[in-house]
């Protein structure tokens, strides 16, 4: 018997070659986030990772740290980021949305109230980078009840943990390309490919690779070896440069610049 599809799976139009961009909600302003999200969808994004800014993001490098600071200064919070999702839909965003947040804001929101809010606002997925398998039991149960995917991560150090994590993975499995925090990497380590292979052996959901992907060459490599690729810091950088263009031109020109750059980054 076929397993019933989750909301997230139902919205995915393919199982391979998934382009998953990450942006920080409210960077530099909530209205802007909507514009960038739409442009990313136009450029072929299959899932949107909507990052919630956090004061002390342990898994993030300087680029996303700075974006988080800009967004926090603009008044963004977990609550507001979740409530932004219906506005994204209204503006025309159809792809599934995964809320990416550190755990402490979730804890303050309250597990039950938070998962209810995700459901009410039509969020399909949740990713918490500092909540490993061992600490995620309660949220795992609660998200399942509401048909929301709790996305898991595997890292190059995971080794014996890979099987355990991959077998219960939902939505897609986030494969951390290499040691370290988010940020561009000039080159992908050769071990990355064998690591991806190993993860794919155990995973029944698409395996998407993130951390460091910042060039078209790397995108091509991931197209070949993984089911998808996640781009964070590089997209945030493109937002920064589109804001620069905007300063000397107008808003549309900034957005056009952003689209061009994204298209170039992910072109086949």
């Amino acid at each position: 018997m076929m397993k019933q599809q989750t909301l997230f799976q139902g919205k995915l139009t393919k199982q391979k070659d998934l382009f998953i961009p990450f942006i920080v909600a409210g960077d530099p302003h909530p209205d802007k986030t909507i514009q960038y999200a739409l442009r990313l969808q136009e450029a072929g994004a299959d899932v949107l990772e909507l990052g919630v800014p956090y004061s002390d993001p342990l898994a993030d490098g300087p680029v996303i740290q700075k974006a988080a600071r800009r967004a926090l200064d603009a008044g963004m919070s977990l609550r507001k980021a979740v409530e932004m999702v219906p506005e994204l839909r209204k503006a025309g965003l159809n792809i599934p949305v995964v809320i990416f947040t550190y755990y402490n804001p979730v804890l303050q929101y309250g597990h039950e109230a938070f998962i209810d809010a995700l459901e009410e606002n039509g969020v399909e997925g949740l990713l918490i980078p500092d909540l490993p398998l061992e600490e995620s039991e309660d949220l795992n149960e609660r998200t399942k009840e509401k048909d929301i995917e709790l996305i898991s991560l595997v890292a190059p150090t995971s080794e014996e943990r890979i099987k355990r994590i991959a077998e219960q993975a939902r939505g897609f499995l986030y494969c951390v390309s290499s040691l370290g925090v988010t940020g561009e990497r000039k080159e992908m380590a050769p071990e990355t490919l064998s690591f991806i292979e190993k993860v794919k052996e155990h995973s029944s959901v698409p395996v998407a690779v993130g951390f460091g992907i910042s060039s078209n060459d790397q995108v091509q490599l991931m197209r070949k070896h993984a089911d998808g690729f996640i781009i964070g810091s590089k997209i945030v950088k493109l937002i920064e440069s589109s804001l620069e263009v905007e300063k000397s031109g107008d808003e549309q020109e900034g957005l056009r610049h952003f689209s061009d750059e994204v298209n170039e980054l992910v072109q086949a």
């Binding site: 398998l133 061992e134 600490e135 991560l153 190059p156 150090t157 995971s158 080794e159 943990r161």
Partner: peptide, 20 residues
């Protein structure tokens, strides 16, 4: 064994650090 002192403690870290 989970590193808990009553309700407190635990391991809230990125997956990369779990094995170390």
């Amino acid at each position: 064994h989970k590193g808990r002192y009553g309700d407190f403690g635990g391991k809230y870290v990125p997956e990369t650090l779990m094995a170390p």
